[in-house]
Design a protein around this nucleic acid. Structure first.
Length: 415
RNA sequence: GCGGGUAUAGCUCAGUAGGUAGAGCGUCAGAUUGUGGUUCUGAAUGUCACGGGUUCGAUCCCCGUUACUCGCCCCA
């Protein structure tokens, strides 16, 4: 073994690849049902797109991007900024005031890999650009929830919060900082660092002592305007009337700079430390920030590897790839040539067929047919070639059917 | 960037109180010369992660490196 895969990447071998395709198609179907349309963007973008979009100070931009060509380009570490870029560059707002877009794609972040985290990973997500209506928030959460339900996933907690407008947040942050500065030495080292960089994220702490200090801290929600709170309550009551189970979590804050007001997260216990399955929220400032007219928008992203992990832990039954219609067992050169012609015909009729390419014994070929889950087997030897008759063997019960004309297999197998 | 754990066959793992290794599964072949699944028999495959040290001798003990893995940070 001379060369190994790069750290944090993984090979998707045939069995898993089949499952992934199945999963992606199922997700795609749900997006279409919600009237979202697929969008694909380049694997890399101008580095400045992510600096402006995600925020220069975030961990992702400051130290986790794969950047090349003298920092000009970067492998996409997330999809919201590229989607918005494509939205603006192609003037999609002129086609319809509300664009509902989804994507399923891989992305790249140079983090330390661990359970549920890779350097090349895949996400699917949706972006609804153009509506500030609270029902747009509701639909987005319903969409995410619907995907989970379609896979029969139950043990996922939905957390919802609003972090208000920038103006509201700034007023709060001033008070929050004032309060914390009195407790600074008692805070965990992590939180002390956040105090300088991104104080809001201190709310996300896991430290017991921090939580005690936070218990007395001012609460963001109380600093929001009436209209913001009202809008949030409308979202919640709409979700309630749809019988969606969720919890409001005033401490839910997300890492990217572009989030405003509504934020939400779907959490699962069966994911290890990286327990977030879906994450999303409103980003009403991003489009303006990237040079467009101020346009409200909301979206979410979900990790495919994490979804796969949950499905595997939950023993989700993926369909199996192996369902060969027919395996033709051959005995000699002449029968091989005939078999190749026969399976070519059947393949042209979209039937999955196979024959031996290893010059193996009859017994071995039978075993191979069995291993590949062939529905039928035909043995073609000298006798069959001479009489142009053969036996079609059904592998599930061993029954055999006489075929009067070998070159006319199709109708017999198809029924 | 910082911590913990692990490294033996394709896979899961055992093992040697230091004398260069095994099991199960899988793969391949055969069980009187044209019919699979069950059963039985047999076979192949390891520089025991890499480099150094101790030793007559290291897969085993010590040091280092690398990889993998779990966690912190951050996030999907």
């Amino acid at each position: 073994m001379l060369i190994q895969k790069p750290k944090g990447t993984y090979d998707i071998l045939p069995e898993k690849a089949f499952q992934r395709t199945f999963l992606e198609n199922k997700i795609r179907k749900i997006f279409y049902d919600f009237n979202y349309s697929e969008i694909r963007t380049p694997t890399f973008e101008k580095t400045s797109l992510f600096k402006r979009g995600i925020g220069e100070e975030t961990d992702i931009v400051s130290k986790e991007m794969y950047t090349f060509n003298e920092n000009e380009f970067t492998l996409k570490p997330e999809m919201t900024a590229p989607v918005v870029r494509a939205y603006l560059e192609n003037s999609l707002y002129n086609e319809s005031p509300l664009q509902k877009l989804f994507y399923i794609t891989n992305m790249f972040r140079r983090e330390r890999p661990q359970a549920g985290r890779f350097r090349e990973f895949s996400q699917f997500g949706a972006e609804a650009i153009g509506s500030s209506d609270y029902l747009s928030d509701v639909e987005m959460i319903l969409l995410a929830d619907s995907i989970l339900k379609n896979f029969g996933i139950k043990d996922v907690a939905i957390k919802i919060n609003t972090i208000g407008t920038i103006a509201e947040r700034n007023i709060y942050l001033e008070e929050f900082r004032k309060y914390l500065s009195g407790h600074l030495p008692e805070l965990s080292p992590d939180s002390q660092r956040r105090f300088e960089k991104n104080p809001l994220r201190i709310l996300d702490t896991k430290s017991e002592k921090d939580l005690q200090i936070l218990a007395e801290a001012p609460v963001l929600y109380e600093y929001l305007n009436e209209s913001t709170k009202e809008n949030f309550e409308k979202i919640l009551s709409a979700l309630r009337s749809l019988n969606l189970n969720f919890i409001t979590d005033y401490k839910l804050v997300r890492g990217f700079d572009y989030y405003t007001s509504t934020t939400f997260e779907f959490i699962s216990d069966s994911l290890g430390a990286q327990n977030s399955l879906f994450g999303g929220g409103r980003y009403d400032l991003l489009i303006d920030q990237l040079g467009g007219k101020p346009t409200p928008a909301i979206g979410f992203a979900a990790g495919i590897e994490r979804l796969m992990m949950i499905l595997e832990n939950g023993n989700f039954e993926f369909p199996s790839e192996k369902k060969l219609k027919l395996f033709i067992v051959t005995m000699n050169e002449e029968s091989k040539n005939l078999a190749l012609r026969l399976i070519s015909d059947l393949r042209n009729k979209n039937l999955r067929c196979e024959m031996d390419f290893l010059n193996r014994s009859l017994k071995s070929q039978m075993k191979e047919a069995n291993r590949q889950n062939a529905e039928y087997v035909i043995v073609i030897g000298e006798e069959e070639i001479r009489t142009n008759k053969a036996k079609l063997k059904k592998m599930s019960d061993g029954s055999e059917l006489e075929i009067s004309d070998i070159s006319d297999l199709n109708s017999e197998i198809l029924n």
